[in-house]
Design a protein around this nucleic acid. Structure first.
Lengths: 158, 158
DNA sequence: AAGCAAAACAGAATAATATTCTAGCCTCTC
DNA sequence: GAGAGGCTAGAATATTATTCTGTTTTGCTT
């Protein structure tokens, strides 16, 4: 099965409205419910979409602090790298972790209840490879544009 | 209505399995379907959860480049700031934007079909306030830990 | 502690939706 | 142009969502 216009539309809609009913989805893409469901199932089985997340309104739920941390490793050996990454990723408050090229080695997004707790996490990360890790912390002031999906059209029309 | 144990559980489950049926959800939190639905509705009305997103498997869908960009503004006046942020956020490929304190002013996550397209975006951003913007680009090599929800327990047990 | 009101609950009835199955259509290939 | 595969719509069935009702629980007041 190819990524024809209908499948694109399905992915595009499901990406932003994950809890839409199959009937509504079918109507919006111009298919019968059964055909639509077939496609959705296949897209899921192929691993093209999923999991489905509900975005929590964190500020409304509790006080919290979000920090974006840049990480540089003085020892850039694979082992040191893996060790740090593994430790970082298993911390629940580290909600996101990217390995990058360029000035830094890694970007982390950390969500903690307060600064005290963030400091603990920071210290814990520094201790993974003592003296070899450089972390720069940036407290998030405003989430100007929260993630709401990928620019599917821009990516696929290519 | 308070955020009692059941509501926490609902949010926690819905956060990670947005397409779960109400019946399954009800069973897992130990409520009848009707009561469970009532709670979910209220949580949504209060804006505590939503929207619901389907995560696309971008590598499986198409070739793409993800870049994390740090932004520094030489002119940190509110106007310059707003101008840049506004421009950045309306670019579809800029999927995420944070304003931060610290060494930088802003973090962007940009997803483009290729480097050529990313360069165009980069240039466009530099031109918003010519000569006053410093952008450092970091190509994402691996998405070590993709975002899958907030550490609700760690945040609420506080 | 008794009484009241509001909120939350379960269960039944109904409406809507999901799912499966069948058969028809289109397209591609040989 | 015959056959296979893929896709479709529609009907039948199973599951789920939704509404409604009466009851229980909770929390507060007295």
């Amino acid at each position: 099965m190819q990524l024809d216009r209908i499948n694109r539309k399905i992915l595009s809609i499901l990406q932003q409205e994950a809890r839409i009913t199959n009937q509504q989805l079918a109507e919006r893409v111009g298919l019968s419910p059964s055909s639509c469901l077939n496609r959705v199932r296949k897209l899921e089985q192929q691993g093209l979409i999923g999991p489905y997340l509900g975005i929590l309104n964190l500020p409304a739920l509790c006080r919290s602090v979000t920090v974006i941390a840049t990480v540089s490793l003085k020892d850039q050996s694979t082992d040191a790298f893996r060790a740090f990454q593994q430790q970082a990723e298993q911390i629940p408050e580290v909600v996101e972790c990217y390995t990058v090229s360029g000035m830094f080695d890694m970007f982390l997004r950390v969500v903690a209840p307060d600064m005290a707790r963030y400091n603990e996490i920071n210290d814990r990360l520094l201790d993974v490879i003592p003296g070899m890790v450089n972390i720069s912390s940036h407290v998030v002031l405003t989430e100007g544009k929260p993630f709401r999906g990928y620019p599917l059209d821009a990516l696929l029309d290519h």
